[in-house]
Design a protein around this nucleic acid. Structure first.
Length: 459
DNA sequence: CGGGAGCGCGCG
DNA sequence: AAAGCGCGCGCTCCCG
C-alpha cells in the first residue's frame, strides 16, 4: 500500500503500539469520576411524575386506537404482534431494505417504520406509542425509583468498560438522557441544581471531527477548522456547489437571528436539505457507513428517499473532498492488520483480532472498529485530561468556600453545580483548559459553555 | 419465577 | 455477502 508522506511523517512518533500513556490519562480523570459518583445529581420528582402521568394516558389511547385498527387486541410493545399486524394482516412493504427477524418478518425498527408512514395510519401510532413507552419506562419511572433519600440519583461512571477508553454510566445511565425531542427534553428539566446554585456545562465543540482532522492531517478539513468556519456549512457548499462566501454570510446572520423573509426561507431550506445530510455523512463516514445505511438514516431524519446510487455518489464526493480522511482510514486498517491493534493519539491501544478472521464480514467489522477507535478514543483521552486539570480549578473555588461540584461527564461535555457568582469565571477558565489541555495540535480546539437552572436549559 | 435471547432505542 | 462506532437498559417471549 502506498501512503503519502504526510501520514508517515506525522505518525512516526506514535507508530508503535504500546505507549504507556493510557494508564496515566485514566489516573488523571479518577478524582473527578469519584466526585461525580459520590455526589449525584438532584432530581425533581414532580416533573417526572407529571410527565409520566401524561405519557400513561397517551399510551393507553394509542394502544386502543391500534387495536381498533387491527380489529383485535394488539400490544404495541410487542414487536412480534406489531410485525404480524403490519406485514401479514395489512401486507405493508418496507421502503428500505429491512433485515428479517427470527419471526421471518421484516424488522419493525424505527427506520423501517418511518419509511412506511404514508402506507397506513397505524404505522405512526406505533411510533408514537414507542416514544411514549421509552420515555416512561426508561426515564420517568426508573429515575424516580433510583432517587436517594437526599433527592439525588447517583450513577456509576465506569472506566474499564468501553474499549475506546470512553467512560460508561450505569444505574442509572445518565449519559443517555433524552435531548432530541421536545417531550424528551422535559426529562432533562427534572435534573436541577441544589438551592442557591446553578448548573453549568462545558462542551468540546465537534471534538471528534477536530480529532479526525488532527489525526489525518487532511489539508482541507484542517484549513476549515483553522479558519474557524462551520465544518458542515462548508462541506455542504462544497458538495452541492454553492457559493460559500454568500451562504456563510447568511448562516452567520441566521445564527444571530437577523434574517427574515426570502433569505430566512432560503437558509432554512439549506439547513434541512444540505447541511443536515452533510453533517450526518461526516459522522457516518467515521463509522464506516455504506450507501444503504446512509439511505435509511437520511429517511429516518425526515429527509428524502435517495436512491442507493445517489447515496453512494454522496459518499464518494465526501471522500473526494476530504481525501486525507480516506487515506488515514486505510492507514488504520493497515495498522490493525500489521500489529493486530490500533491506538489513540495518546497511545491507548485496542486489539482488533477481527481483521484476521476468515469471514469477510467479520474482517469488515474489524476495519470499521479500527477506523473509529483512534478518533473516538483520542477524544475520550482528551476530555479525561481536561477532567484532571479542571479538578484543580474546582479545588481552588472550594478553598474560597464556594460550592463547586462536578456532577456528570457525557463524553464531550462536563456538567457542574456552582454558586452563580463564580459561574462565569469558572466557565471561562474551564473553556481555556478544554482548548489548551492538549498541545501542540495543528488545528484549534473550540469549546462552549452555558449556565441554567436545570439540565434542559444548558446549551 | 428468574434468567437469557432477541429486539428496539436513548445518548455522544 | 453484508450492509454504522461506542455504550446501558426496558420489554416480550421462552425456557428450565
Amino acid at each position: 500500500m502506498k501512503l503519502p508522506n504526510r501520514l508517515f511523517n506525522g505518525a512516526a512518533r506514535i507508530d508503535w503500539p504500546c505507549l504507556p500513556n493510557a494508564r496515566r490519562i485514566d489516573m488523571a480523570a479518577v478524582p473527578m469520576v469519584v466526585e461525580i459518583n459520590r455526589h449525584g445529581m438532584l432530581v425533581d420528582p414532580r416533573v417526572l411524575a407529571d410527565l409520566d402521568a401524561r405519557l400513561q394516558v397517551k399510551m393507553a389511547a394509542l394502544a386502543e386506537d391500534i387495536s381498533t385498527l387491527a380489529g383485535r387486541p394488539i400490544n404495541p410493545g410487542s414487536f412480534q404482534q406489531v410485525g404480524k399486524f403490519l406485514f401479514e394482516d395489512l401486507r405493508l412493504e418496507p421502503t428500505t431494505r429491512a433485515k428479517k427477524t427470527s419471526t421471518g418478518l421484516p424488522s419493525t425498527e424505527e427506520d423501517v417504520l418511518v419509511g412506511m408512514l404514508a402506507q397506513h395510519p397505524a404505522v405512526g401510532l406505533v411510533l408514537d406509542y414507542r416514544e411514549a413507552q421509552k420515555l416512561s419506562g426508561t426515564y420517568c419511572q426508573p429515575l424516580q425509583a433510583l432517587r436517594g433519600a437526599d433527592g439525588r440519583v447517583r450513577t456509576r461512571l465506569m472506566m474499564n468498560v468501553a474499549r475506546t477508553g470512553r467512560l460508561s454510566s450505569e444505574t442509572p445511565n445518565l449519559q443517555n438522557q433524552p435531548t432530541r425531542t421536545e417531550e424528551g427534553r422535559l426529562v432533562r428539566s427534572a435534573f436541577i441544581a441544589q438551592p442557591g446554585c446553578v448548573l453549568s456545562s462545558l462542551d468540546l465543540s465537534q471534538i471528534e471531527m477536530v480529532w479526525a482532522a488532527e489525526l489525518s492531517h487532511d489539508p482541507v478539513m484542517c484549513d476549515v477548522f483553522r479558519m474557524g468556519q462551520d465544518l458542515h456549512v462548508w462541506t455542504a457548499c462544497a458538495l452541492f456547489r454553492l457559493d460559500y462566501a454568500r451562504i456563510s454570510g447568511l448562516w452567520a446572520r441566521y445564527k444571530r437571528g437577523e434574517l427574515e423573509g426570502a433569505e430566512l426561507a432560503e437558509i432554512r431550506d439549506f439547513e434541512l436539505t444540505k447541511r443536515l445530510p452533510a453533517k450526518t455523512l461526516g459522522f457516518a463516514v467515521l463509522y464506516g457507513v455504506t450507501a444503504l445505511g446512509l439511505q435509511a438514516q437520511i429517511l429516518a431524519a425526515g429527509g428524502p428517499l435517495w436512491a442507493e446510487q445517489e447515496c453512494q455518489s454522496f459518499i464518494d464526493a465526501w471522500f473526494h473532498l476530504y481525501h486525507g480522511i480516506l487515506e488515514w482510514l486505510e492507514l488504520q486498517h493497515y495498522r490493525a492488520r500489521r500489529y493486530g491493534m490500533v491506538w489513540t493519539a495518546f497511545g491507548r491501544p485496542r486489539a482488533i483480532p477481527e481483521v484476521y478472521s476468515v469471514h469477510a464480514a467479520v474482517r469488515a467489522e474489524g476495519e470499521r472498529q479500527a477506523g473509529n477507535m483512534a478518533d473516538q478514543g483520542s477524544a475520550a483521552d482528551h476530555i479525561k485530561l481536561v477532567m484532571g486539570e479542571t479538578m484543580a480549578v474546582v479545588d481552588y473555588y472550594r478553598g474560597l468556600g464556594k460550592i463547586c461540584q462536578p456532577v456528570l461527564q457525557v463524553h464531550d461535555e462536563l456538567i457542574f453545580e456552582l454558586e452563580p457568582d463564580i459561574a462565569e469565571e469558572f466557565n471561562s477558565t474551564g473553556l481555556w483548559i478544554m482548548a489548551n489541555a492538549v498541545r501542540p495540535m495543528s488545528v484549534p480546539v473550540k469549546a462552549a459553555a452555558s449556565v441554567g437552572a436545570n439540565w434542559m436549559e444548558l446549551k
